[in-house]
Design a protein around this nucleic acid. Structure first.
Length: 567
RNA sequence: CGGGGCGUAGCGCAGCCUGGUAGCGCACCUGCUUUGGGAGCAGGGUGUCGGAGGUUCGAAUCCUCUCGCCCCGACCA
């Protein structure tokens, strides 16, 4: 491709609305342009990268035995009503009507459509298992789209769905997909972790997220320094601490005045006591009634864990009225002592001696509160994991990293097949619902994540498998006949040997071309200038390297090929 | 949905407070010079000042409404 003929509008200045590096560099390198909030045009350079990712995904999915299909973007409401998600999914589901007033939605994911497809066509266990996937545009009406392709409303996703006769078969496929995903992200040159995750409103029994490690990631993951345990912090468990005797001797409980001191920070500063000695008491409404949850002041409560501990369908922080009714005090002064509610406590509260809690009356706290002596609670792992917490699987400790979720695999079970009566006949002639799995990859997000991991001050540094071109040829001065001829010759021989090459044949100054080359980040650059050419030499530089090397013109193509063969 | 901010040339911004000829840098076009890290000189074009209504002799500027976008929060595969 010739730069002069390509729609490749690079930007010297950063766009004012770029929130993360990948968005900034995608805009500046002319890969994407915004059309509306969370909706983008992919320009030629951007599409090339996306296509690279798609092809890697496609190859590995096919290799893993999945079959590619294409399902509609516009989906009739009735399918979503069958699964009950028409009501459950919320405003992220963009709904619309056709000219007859019939209801449709734009597909944010395709469990319903694929389940409908399979239930129509598959009758017997003999036809199972099947794994069906597509690489397709999805639409989710995100509350707050941001960060370019990282969290758009319209985006490209690979979504796969598998159908099985038995649980063992479904789990085998889950592992198969896990391995395929690892191959995909390895081939993309990404540093990633597969972590245990929450299933959210896709539903299902268990799931893993594939997280690309990056400071700008929107998710936090906990991983063990000693073993392979890794989980989203939404889910990460904490090993129950060993019982240790308190170094404090229990003192008699006392009420102290704490006017207007509601938050942990305010109370701990006012009483000059470490936040870890405070017991935070949170009042929750749940489908099982009002419950109190306790956690040490230096930790956060994890509502998912509380929900599981209570065996509740949902929990929600209570409003002011309920808090007043339950604790006889405004928000900020609740405590477990004498509280009339179901009390659950995190292990961080276990064995607490001489702690501080709300007094269940306005502007007062209790000091020297001892767990067991002054109140009783049911204990569970209820808090959000923090760095240094004990690994649930071994004796190691957990580290916290930030990550970008690029893939997510779910073992769904029969949630959709039961709701939608999608069944097959087993060997005994008995009708059974399909056991399902689903497996997603954010294609644009994967490209964005790659930039987050591979860039420097000057621009993108594409790993070879995702690079829009493999090699860029830069004639320093196209006005010079010899330079131009050498560049054209090299361009042709590189292309002829199957190396996709960008020739910067623009009549621009060298500095402009070098800046653009660094910005766009093509792995190998060949610079052809008059001075070196007089000695029959050209300069070859890898984007990631500091130094360039000089080689003979005749050897340039072979040298480039050699560099590209290395990983 | 709550809080905050921004819409002025293709991009980045000033002007608005205190109403009076719409500006700067980059980009773009022409010519000459220049040609290894975002060139120099000269000349040139560029705007519904986001939109609608209002106040005023006069509105980018003040007021009202509205649309779009960004940030923080709530929410979320």
């Amino acid at each position: 491709m010739r730069f002069s003929r390509m729609l490749l509008p690079t930007l010297k200045e950063s766009p004012s609305d770029a929130g993360v590096i990948s968005q900034n560099l995608m805009m500046r390198s002319g890969m994407i342009r915004k059309v509306a909030a969370g909706i983008y045009n992919l320009l030629p350079l951007g599409l090339r990268v996306i296509t690279r990712v798609e092809n890697i995904v496609r190859e590995e999915m096919n290799r893993a035995g999945a079959q590619e299909v294409s399902m509609p973007v516009v989906i009739p409401a009735e399918l979503w009503k069958e699964s009950h998600r028409w009501d459950e999914y919320g405003k992220e589901l963009l709904r619309l009507r056709d000219r007859h007033g019939r209801e449709f939605c734009l597909g944010p994911t395709h469990e319903e459509v694929v389940t409908d497809m399979v239930r129509r066509e598959v009758r017997s266990y003999r036809e199972l298992p099947v794994n069906i996937y597509q690489i397709q545009t999805k639409f989710r009406d995100e509350i707050r789209p941001r960060f370019g392709l990282m969290r758009g409303r319209e985006f490209t996703m690979k979504d796969a769905y598998s159908f099985h006769a038995t649980d063992e078969c479904a789990e085998r496929e889950y592992r198969n997909m896990h391995d395929a995903y690892c191959r995909i992200f390895e081939r993309c040159g990404l540093e990633f972790r597969a972590v245990e995750a929450e299933t959210g409103n896709i539903g299902g029994r268990f799931s893993h997220e594939f997280m690309v490690l990056a400071e700008t990631g929107e998710d936090a993951i906990a991983s063990c320094s000693a073993c392979s345990y890794a989980a989203n912090t939404e889910r990460a468990e904490i090993r129950q601490p060993d019982e240790t005797a308190s170094i404090h001797a229990p003192k008699p409980i006392e009420t102290v005045s704490t006017p207007g001191k509601k938050s942990v920070e305010e109370v701990s500063a006012f009483l000059k006591i470490a936040p870890s000695r405070l017991i935070k008491t949170l009042i929750y409404d749940t489908d099982k009634g009002v419950a109190a949850a306790l956690v040490a002041g230096n930790y956060d409560l994890n509502e998912m864990k509380l929900t599981r501990a209570l065996d509740a369908a949902w929990v929600k922080l209570s409003d002011e009225d309920t808090v007043k009714k339950t604790s006889n005090a405004p928000i900020g002064f609740a405590g477990p002592v004498g509280l009339k509610a179901d009390i659950w406590a995190d292990y961080s509260v276990k064995g607490m001696v001489n702690g501080v809690t709300g007094a269940n009356s306005a502007d007062a706290h209790l000091i020297n509160v001892c767990e067991g002596r002054d109140f009783k609670a049911q204990f569970a792992d209820l808090r959000v994991v923090a760095a240094g917490d004990a690994c649930p699987r071994c004796k190691g400790t957990l580290e916290i990293h930030r990550g970008i979720e690029v893939g997510h695999i779910f073992k769904l079970g029969t949630k959709y097949s039961e709701a939608m009566s999608a069944t097959f006949l087993d060997a005994a002639g008995k009708e059974r619902p399909f056991i399902m799995g689903c497996y997603g990859i954010g294609v644009g997000r994967t490209a964005a994540a790659s930039i987050e991991q591979n860039h420097d001050d000057l621009g993108i540094i594409w790993p070879r498998p995702l690079a829009p071109f493999s090699c860029e040829v830069v004639p320093v001065n196209v006005a010079d006949e010899g330079t131009r001829k050498a560049a054209e010759g090299l361009y042709e021989s590189l292309n002829a040997s199957g190396i996709e090459t960008l020739l910067d044949d623009r009549d621009e100054r060298a500095g402009v071309k070098f800046k653009d080359a660094d910005l766009i980040g093509i792995p190998v650059r060949v610079t052809i200038g008059e001075r070196n050419l007089k000695q029959g030499l050209v300069e070859i530089k890898e984007r990631r390297a500091k130094e360039a090397r000089l080689v003979k013109v005749e050897e340039a193509a072979a040298t480039v090929a050699g560099l590209l063969k290395q990983a």
